[in-house]
């Protein structure tokens, strides 16, 4: 345990922390820190997704921007674990729902449920089935984005009655899917770097 080798005064000014094992306080601090960081990151990514990337014409794909919030949820699940992925997914769903120009199902928030499941599943599957590297994450981002698109399609059908699947595929799902996969390294690599920093930080391990 790194904490046992640490000697000094931490930010709490509590020396007893360094001598013991995992404490409840330390775990809570880590969770809160992660949660706040995740929330701020989600808001930032949401802002980038809906404004910056939506304004720049990417690869001549009209009105399409990558699902950065979803990527962050998946990356969190893959890197930090299923629980963190699930919680982050829940918040990511809320942010994604709030960012939607029109509420997907008349205001009922179902995206948190979907994102939570995807975040949790990414944590479980990434560790059990896929190798913990970037190509594996690309595969997972593609699958996750596809599921997200499919769910949105179902919600839209529920809302507006009928939607031509080919039109939705070519104009809605496919551009977002391609962009999401292309942008996935930009999310995964920083999240992994943050995780490594967290691992090295003696105060939060």
């Amino acid at each position: 345990m790194k904490i046992q080798r640490f000697r000094g005064v931490d930010s709490y000014g509590d020396r007893t922390l360094h001598t013991g094992g995992y404490s409840e306080k330390r775990q809570t601090y880590r969770a809160v820190k992660l949660l706040v960081l995740a929330l701020i990151t989600l808001c930032l990514l949401g802002g980038i997704q809906t404004t910056l990337l939506a304004k720049i014409p990417l690869f001549v794909l009209p009105s399409a921007s990558p699902a950065l919030c979803l990527l962050f949820v998946l990356a969190t699940g893959c890197v930090f674990g299923e629980k963190e992925g699930g919680i982050c997914g829940c918040f990511g769903g809320i942010v994604a729902e709030c960012l939607s120009m029109d509420a997907l199902l008349g205001g009922i928030m179902l995206l948190p449920l979907v994102y939570a499941v995807l975040g949790y599943a990414s944590g479980v599957l990434f560790q059990k089935i896929l190798a913990g590297n970037l190509p594996s994450f690309l595969v997972f981002a593609a699958v996750g984005s596809f599921f997200d698109g499919g769910f949105r399609y179902i919600l839209m059908i529920l809302r507006i009655g009928a939607l031509p699947p080919f039109s939705f595929l070519t104009h809605g799902l496919l551009p977002v899917w391609i962009l999401t996969v292309l942008f996935s390294p930009l999310i995964y690599l920083p999240v992994r770097a943050v995780k490594r920093k967290f691992d090295k930080d003696p105060l939060v391990t």
Binding site: E82, G86, I108, M109, L110, P112, L113, A116, V117
Partner: peptide, 16 residues
């Protein structure tokens, strides 16, 4: 944990 999370998300949806 997933079940709890789903329950929370569902509750959120129900509240909405």
């Amino acid at each position: 944990f997933l079940m709890k999370l789903c329950a929370v998300a569902l509750l959120l949806a129900i509240f909405c």
